[in-house]
Design a protein around this nucleic acid. Structure first.
Length: 554
RNA sequence: GCCCGCGUAGCUCAGUGGAUAGAGCAAUGGGUUUCUAACCCAUGUGUCGAAGGUUCGAAUCCUUCCGCGGGUGCCA
């Protein structure tokens, strides 16, 4: 919470002394304050004087000296001391009483953490997972599922109005192939023209399971072959989606809406989009196909929307899907989380949306990189069609939702990761999540034990944090809003895993080094319990945001 | 070939202009008649893939190169 406050101080003194200097030109994101490294004897530092040397032809120490006078004159009470350090840093120490009083509020007013951020009055949709309903989710989908659900939760906490969506590709070739694959495993259904199952057909045990369970729901008589194929496919997709939903549920992932691609056909969104693009002279019929002229807009090549056989490409549906999000359902912002195999689609999708009048910055497409699977030293290939792959539910059952979520959440989505199944199974006791949960359980117990002292916390006027460890934990707790803010801005929730681990670590160390409940030292005990409560509330909030359970006993 | 991402400790990874580059795991040694030992304390390791450049300052930005993965379909 202090970073922003100090930032404001610096900005206002800059405006007074150097009114002509643009803050943005001093730092990319405009931020001029950062936490001091551990080795430095202060809490926050600013390199603003060093940065100013570009514009003010003076020694940075002299500039720091000038700014110091401005800052010191208006020094608010949360700052104890401002120091100038070589080669020109301005360093700030935070007042301990101010920290203590914040901790007290956090400990006693349970709503404090729930009301840290203002409502933003902005509707955001996050679309993630969106795997084709032609097979169960595999281990790679865990990443997108965890990333999307945690990000959604955090953005919502930050004050946005967020909706989660799963886009169901229930049209097109893959679905057709899926339906036929099921039909081919239904010996009771005899079709006049035997359908040739080709290399692209789906295999795997789940196909025959589906065939078996659908068999009874299909009547072979009275209806045409086309209808049989249609019905089997439809039921197959529905059953597959039920399985997918259940699997995601076990990972604590839920969606507000399941949007079906077929809706874009039935409500004529596709036609509408085609007309709009056509009006902009971005459509061309050539070689029997209908093209979107994306090259005109800066793409490497044009792209087909309607194929020679009159079927639609995925890209066409995708434009319509996004048109629906922005122009029909009126979301202010849409965040898509796509697998790395879709990164080639980003540019053309954005170009298409821009040509339909959507501002580029309102469509955020985040890529979650590949997960490669290892079983010990053996590499595992993922192939949905061959049916040879490790499923999401297999991993979640083996490793547990909590450990799974923490593991996948703790990496940035930008970098590929290797998931060793053997290691995940064997290592789950050393997964840092248990360390954090243990801190939560210890804290809960501690607070429970403290009730025996019958302290009336309403009568406490102020608390006194004394030891270095106490102050350090308190500062850590007060960093929480900044962590959330960073995640909301960068859309990268992995920062919370580290933060929470660090907080838990400081607590474990504190717990070991000092006795917290001491009946002979009630005054000190009160402060320590309040600090513990503040830690507990913060750890609990982190776990909730990660959608990981908070056990009271371990 | 071109486009996107990645390359940081033995392993898995944070850090993306700022101060002496950090965690977890693994390793070694110690710790509780005391609020939960799934804990704590101590000990080490780095050509930040390579080279050049920009800068007061580079793991971070730029250029080139090397390595790994993905994309480059009238597939999804």
């Amino acid at each position: 919470m202090y970073t922003q406050k100090i930032q404001n101080l610096i900005v206002s003194s800059l405006k007074k002394r150097y009114p002509n200097i643009n803050i943005q030109s001093l730092s990319k994101d405009g931020l001029l304050v950062q936490k001091s490294p551990d080795s430095i004897d202060s809490d926050y530092g600013s390199s603003v004087a060093l940065r100013l040397t570009k514009f003010v032809k003076k020694h940075p120490m002299d500039i720091a000296d000038i700014l110091y006078k401005y800052l010191n004159d208006t020094k608010p009470d949360f700052i104890d001391e401002i120091k100038i350090i070589n080669p020109g840093y301005l360093n700030f120490s935070i007042n301990k009483k101010h920290i203590s009083s914040n901790i007290k509020t956090l400990a006693l007013n349970s709503g404090t953490l729930d009301n840290l951020f203002n409502k933003k009055n902005r509707n955001i949709q996050i679309e993630f997972v969106s795997a084709n309903p032609t097979g169960p989710l595999h281990v790679g989908h865990i990443r997108g599922a965890v990333y999307g659900s945690a990000l959604s939760k955090i953005l919502n906490y930050y004050g946005f109005n967020v909706k989660n969506e799963y886009y169901v590709n229930d049209a097109g070739n893959q679905i057709k192939e899926f339906g036929i694959s099921i039909l081919n495993q239904m010996p009771n259904i005899k079709l006049k023209n035997k359908i040739n199952s080709n290399e692209d057909s789906y295999k795997g045990a789940y196909i025959s399971d589906l065939a078996h369970s659908i068999q009874n729901e299909i009547s072979n008589l009275e209806i045409s072959e086309q209808e049989i194929i249609g019905n089997v496919t439809k039921i197959g997709v529905q059953k597959m989606l039920d399985i997918i939903k259940k699997d995601l549920n076990n990972l604590n992932v839920n969606f507000d809406n399941w949007f079906h691609e077929t809706q874009l056909f039935s409500d004529k969104t596709l036609d509408q989009v085609l007309k709009l693009l056509s009006d902009k002279k971005l459509i061309l019929k050539q070689d029997g196909a209908t093209w979107f002229l994306s090259k005109k807009l800066g793409d490497e090549r044009d792209n087909v929307l309607i194929k020679k056989d009159l079927s639609h490409t995925y890209f066409f549906s995708d434009i319509a899907n996004h048109y629906n999000k922005f122009c029909i359902r009126k979301f202010d912002k849409v965040i898509n989380i796509w697998g790395a195999d879709h990164q080639g689609h980003i540019k053309r999708t954005k170009l298409a949306m821009e040509s339909l009048g959507v501002k580029s910055e309102n469509l955020e497409i985040k890529i979650s990189q590949m997960v490669t699977i290892k079983k010990g030293s053996e590499k595992v290939k993922i192939s949905k069609r061959s049916g040879e792959y490790v499923t999401l539910s297999e991993i979640v059952t083996e490793v547990g939702s909590d450990a799974c979520r923490y593991f996948f959440l703790s990496r940035t989505p930008d970098s590929q990761l290797t998931f060793d199944i053997e290691l995940a199974k064997s290592q789950n006791a050393s997964n840092p999540i248990y360390y954090i949960q243990y801190a939560h359980a210890r804290l809960t117990n501690l607070i429970e034990n403290a009730k025996k002292l019958n302290i009336d916390f309403n009568k406490i006027s102020e608390i006194h944090l004394e030891s270095d460890k106490e102050i350090s934990i308190a500062k850590k707790i007060l960093e929480f809003p900044e962590v959330i803010e960073q995640i909301a801005k960068e859309l990268e929730p992995h920062h919370i895993t580290r933060y929470c681990l660090e907080l838990a670590s400081e607590f474990h160390s504190y717990y070991q080094s000092e006795k917290i409940i001491d009946e002979k030292e009630i005054k000190k005990t009160v402060s320590k319990i309040l600090l513990s409560k503040a830690i507990l509330n913060t750890v609990k909030k982190c776990l909730d945001l990660m959608m990981i359970s908070s056990p009271k006993n371990m």
